[in-house]
Design a protein around this nucleic acid. Structure first.
Lengths: 171, 171
DNA sequence: AAGAATTATATGAAAATTCATGTTTTCTGG
DNA sequence: CCAGAAAACATGAATTTTCATATAATTCTT
């Protein structure tokens, strides 16, 4: 199978890496996300719960990074989850600015069920996809993520030519 | 590098396929998306433009699938883009229900610039990532997408046991 | 060919998200 | 120790998104 990105007749979108990543993510998540919703959680809430099973008691900013949710948005989500009894918030005794988030017993029970479901779903998906445990695709994705997070400076630039930028800017 | 998903001590999230896909998608897109915003478009608008460079004149529903945007949301986005002169909408002469969406000359100019930028960005990213043209990772992603879209029925179920479902449902 | 069903898009209200900024607490240099 | 800077969260208004459903046009059924 060859890359068709340079063929002028080939469509752009279906061969564009960023599209393929987004589409793969969506397609892979669709079923489980709808399962999550049947359990009464929205996807960002599920993400928070899953992260807390790993790092219970983390502060809002940490959680935001871990769950890929913007901070002010996460704050609002956490407040709702607190109101629903899924998590509690305690300010850090050491640093009064920090708010640490914990799963409640009820929240933990739900989170652990969903994580178990997620593991099962993942296993079946990987088995049916390529028969393996997914270490190949996972390693590739991890490498990509590491690569992208690594070189902050001089990341693959969008436009290296100032002249071109100017031309673009006033169109 | 081995898969650590079964190690009970290993964190769940960073080894979870759905997380890795979402994180890779986000990380890979971040820079280009911010470029898109500097050009005055939001990401969903960019997606619409990119899709239209492939399939100008497609109907709203087609575009929604292609751009991975829910229909009613897309309708609103398109109305805004129409107001800004980026696209036009014409009802299909053959089937009055259908609304076909076209890039305006201005929209096309911007779209083509951004597609060129996207191609350039992608090339640099792939070169700096693994030195190649990305056909490996792309093929994997395409295969995954195909696999997921293929088996609608009996997709890797979240829970195959009705008993377990019931237990989950009333917790 | 009429009525029912289906398809395509639009719409409205509720809810979520974004973005800029406010508040509080801690850190830092002098 | 103090002033100013920085860090961590919270908040509010504007905008977007969602979800259910309305409207309109076509197709199917009998």
């Amino acid at each position: 199978m060859s890359n068709t990105i340079d063929d002028p007749k080939a469509p752009f979108v279906p061969n564009y890496l960023l599209y393929l990543l987004a589409a793969a993510s969506e397609a892979a998540s669709a079923r489980f996300h709808s399962h999550v919703r049947t359990r009464g959680l929205r996807v960002p809430e599920w993400r928070v719960m899953a992260c807390l099973t790993d790092t219970d008691g983390s502060m809002v900013t940490e959680l935001a990074r871990y769950a890929m949710i913007e901070q002010s948005r996460l704050t609002k989500i956490i407040i709702q989850m607190d109101a629903r009894g899924l998590v509690t918030r305690r300010s850090d005794p050491t640093d009064g600015r920090r708010v640490r988030v914990f799963l409640t017993p009820q929240g933990r029970a739900l989170a652990e069920e969903l994580v178990a479901d997620a593991r099962a779903h993942e296993l079946e998906l990987l088995k049916s996809f390529q028969g393996g445990d997914g270490s190949e695709i996972k390693d590739t994705l991890r490498a990509l993520i590491r690569h992208l997070e690594a070189d902050q400076p001089n990341q693959p630039g969008i436009s290296d030519s100032p002249a071109r930028d100017a031309a673009i800017a006033d169109s």
